[in-house]
Design a protein around this nucleic acid. Structure first.
Length: 744
DNA sequence: CATAGCCGCCTTTTT
DNA sequence: GGCGGCTATG
């Protein structure tokens, strides 16, 4: 059977339409669970069946994991060999390595992560003689990142800004880019920006690529940013064979520059585009789809769309209230244990939460309940000190100009090269106008350096040179060599039992390098380093381990599970307090995030919140999330304030009863519920105080400070504290009973 | 020059 | 609560 036969006999008519449209632009608007991934892989197979050589196909996915899966699925159809399947960032790394010379980029560039970037931006702020108090590095970095995502280069930004902050930012931005260039380093955003500019400024390169990648497929298009949009536009300009797939309702990366207009305006960019809508849902039961539908209907900035169920009714969705986060975790562990005892495979269970910090308590409960679990957090491994140390050696070996790496390890493990010596080296370097690593190489010639210090520096330089001599070829042996001969192993060994984990971690790194060597045709240190720099949390998920998966809602994107648990449905957590209560776009994104979580569930969905949660060491009363009241769940089926639930099953209900009710009715009901929940809160027979009009998001007036928006309410009965952001820009915490706030 | 201990800062989501 | 950076001390 050819892949096309397979497509013909098993795809729905809209899916077939998407698969068999060969030439020209195609937009696949695919709701959750609509079989989008299948459509893409079948489409790749169909292109090949149609005579397109695989190497002329380029598919872009959102994560490396998704790319790997797509490669496997395509291979199963006999269609993958030679097709390029990767993320935008990986593609850009390859393009910059291959063609970067045209943009002054050397192929062995380092990729800088947050920590590296932070060091560079601090140096840039300092170089510009600005105060880090008024110009916090994190702010500056965020601003620079936003500019890069919009493809605004330093010069362009400088000429278009005229206010005080903008001018300072322009100088910092330019200086930061200079520093990165000197260190032969690119940050994450540079990968996209430099690639986009390279394509636009070098028509010959774009032409070569258009010839190579004659068919372009881009998944999760709703989460592309402007830089990615421009790259896609360049790649497809010559042939318009671009197929974008995505779902505006699942756009959850606005905060990092994703621009939903890219998908909404696809038809304007490509007027001859065929639009295919995949609206049927083959994943979830109607019970689950209905609450997802009800929730997302509250977003105003969207085209109305319904999820069309294809499966029979299943388990009722459960909403449960717990006393605090410990009870919630215990209840979770109990319910999951029961499921596993009943024969459910742990792999078919997942727990989603808004912030990573929430994983710890769940983890502790799972350990006690002996539930096998994995926390899907890939980058954590690479953030360990010992791993960063080894990687710094490797980066310095691959890229001598990488001063951040150099400074990290020149005295790690301690080899007697202290601050004074470094100052003298830096001094020499700046007087001679040479980079620091050249000064290090010339230590013996530096008069300001005492003999003993010069010897230590020279010994270090010789060590790195020795490593460099073995840097060709497979990476695994190099990691071992570096670990053993740098002194890192000995220093960890000297720690005794305390160093054991660290040693094991480095050995795991060596294993992963060996694994890389095994699956790569021409392994190289530069390629290995660039690949692991792009490793993401979601990439760490391994379904074959037979474990319950714990992950953030963001990491859950693209996955599906028979049984899903979403915890912490509380104001301040989901929606998160850092989202601007005034900005309805921010709020809508939080709602989409929950929508994504809900629609991961195939059969059972459990939602929970805790009445009290410890925040920064303090146990505080929490307010149930406004989203709970938007699910269209009858009030009688939601936990009430004095329920003492201890199990997820306690408050299950049947959503199918509510089907057909008008959305207005639902909204009214939700509003009624909302007041009931955020109203007076009693605990242990305490006298209720009237905090009902003071929920986060509401507008108020203060006799002195004027109008403002409530950010947070810490409900302590008569001593409730309220945090208000006033229109003057300042945020104040006030004792509610003295504040004389007037609800508006 | 190294280390320990303390202080103060930040604290969402991630390629 | 956790981490990075700074200071004081050995």
């Amino acid at each position: 059977m050819t892949s096309n036969d397979a497509a013909q006999c098993r795809l729905t008519s809209s899916q077939q339409k998407a698969v068999s449209h060969i030439d020209g632009p195609l937009l696949v608007l695919a709701g959750p669970g609509s079989g989008k991934t299948r459509v893409i892989t079948f489409r790749i197979a169909a292109l090949i069946d149609h005579g397109v050589p695989p190497r002329n196909i380029c598919a872009i996915t959102f994560t490396n994991k998704a790319a790997e899966q797509m490669r496997q699925r395509a291979a199963a159809l006999g269609a993958s060999a030679g097709a390029h399947i990767s993320t935008f960032h990986s593609l850009c790394v390859r393009l910059l390595r291959r063609y970067g010379a045209a943009a002054g980029i050397k192929p062995n560039f380092s990729i800088y992560d947050d920590a590296d970037q932070s060091k560079c931006i601090k140096a840039a702020v300092r170089d510009c003689q600005l105060d880090t108090a008024n110009f916090p590095p994190s702010r500056m970095l965020a601003a620079v990142s936003t500019l890069k995502n919009k493809l605004i280069a330093p010069e362009a930004f400088k000429s278009r800004t005229n206010d005080f902050f903008g001018e300072a930012l322009a100088r910092v931005y330019a200086r930061y880019q200079r520093i990165l260039a000197d260190l032969n380093a690119l940050d994450f955003d540079d990968l996209l920006m430099k690639a986009a500019f390279m394509l636009e400024e070098n028509p010959n390169i774009a032409a070569q690529l258009a010839d190579r990648f004659r068919y372009l497929l881009i998944d999760e298009y709703q989460d592309t940013n402007h830089a990615q949009y421009r790259i896609a536009r360049s790649l497809a300009a010559a042939h318009h064979n671009i197929c974008a797939t995505g779902d505006p309702d699942q756009s959850i990366y606005r905060w990092r520059g994703a621009d939903i207009r890219n998908i909404l305006a696809f038809e304007e960019d490509y007027p001859d585009a065929l639009i295919v809508k995949l609206e049927e849902n083959f994943r979830s039961t109607p019970n689950i789809l209905e609450i997802a539908d009800n929730l997302i209907a509250h977003n105003k900035h969207r085209k109305p769309k319904r999820l069309v169920p294809t499966l029979p009714n299943g388990h009722a969705v459960a909403v449960t209230a717990f006393e605090d986060e410990y009870e919630e975790a215990r209840g979770l562990a109990r319910t999951i244990s029961d499921l596993i005892d009943a024969g459910v495979a742990p792999t078919d269970i997942a727990v989603f939460y808004r912030v990573n910090a929430m994983s710890r308590i769940v983890e502790e409960a799972f350990i006690r309940a002996r539930i096998p679990y994995q926390i899907v957090r890939g980058v954590e491994f690479y953030n360990r000190k010992e791993i960063r140390d080894v990687l710094a050696y490797l980066k310095l070996i691959a890229n001598p100009a990488d001063e951040v790496a150099l400074l990290r390890i020149i005295n790690t493990p301690a080899r007697g090269i202290g601050k004074t010596t470094l100052d003298r080296l830096a001094n020499y370097a700046s007087r001679h106008g040479i980079p620091l690593h050249n000064a290090v190489a010339r230590a013996a010639e530096i008069e300001a350096l005492p003999k003993a210090a010069a010897l230590k520096v020279a010994t270090f330089a010789a060590l790195i040179d020795k490593f460099r001599a073995s840097a060709e070829g497979p990476v695994g042996p190099l990691v071992e060599l570096v670990f053993n001969e740098s002194g890192l192993y000995d220093s960890l060994r000297a720690l005794g039992p305390d160093g054991r984990d660290a040693i094991e971690n480095v050995e795991e790194l060596a294993n992963s390098a060996a694994g890389y060597d095994g699956r790569t045709e021409e392994p190289s240190l530069v390629d290995f380093l660039q690949q692991i720099a792009l490793f993401s949390d979601a990439d760490a998920y391994d379904p074959s381990k037979g474990q319950v998966a714990l992950m953030t809602l963001h990491a859950a994107k693209g996955l599906e599970f028979d049984n899903a648990f979403i915890i912490g449905l509380e104001e301040g957590l989901l929606p998160h307090e850092r989202t601007d209560a005034d900005d309805e776009h921010d709020l809508e994104e939080e709602r989409r995030l929950l929508f994504v979580g809900i629609t991961r569930a195939k059969s059972r969905l459990h939602i929970s919140y805790a009445r009290y949660r410890t925040i920064r060491g303090q146990m505080l009363r929490s307010v149930p999330s406004q989203f709970l009241f938007e699910l269209g769940i009858p009030e009688s089926a939601l936990p009430s304030d004095d329920d003492d639930d201890d199990d997820f099953d306690a408050d299950s209900f049947d959503t199918t009863r509510g089907r057909g009710a008008g959305s207005n009715a639902r909204r009214d009901k939700a509003a009624g519920l909302s007041e009931g929940f955020s109203g007076p809160i009693t605990r242990g027979g305490e006298q209720p105080s009237d905090v009902a009009p003071f929920t986060p998001g509401r507008k108020v007036r203060h006799p002195h400070f004027g109008h403002g928006t409530i950010r947070k309410l810490i409900n302590l009965g008569p001593d409730s504290i309220i945090e208000v952001r006033f229109n003057t820009g300042q945020t104040k915490s006030l004792l509610l009973k003295y504040a004389h706030l007037e609800p508006l």
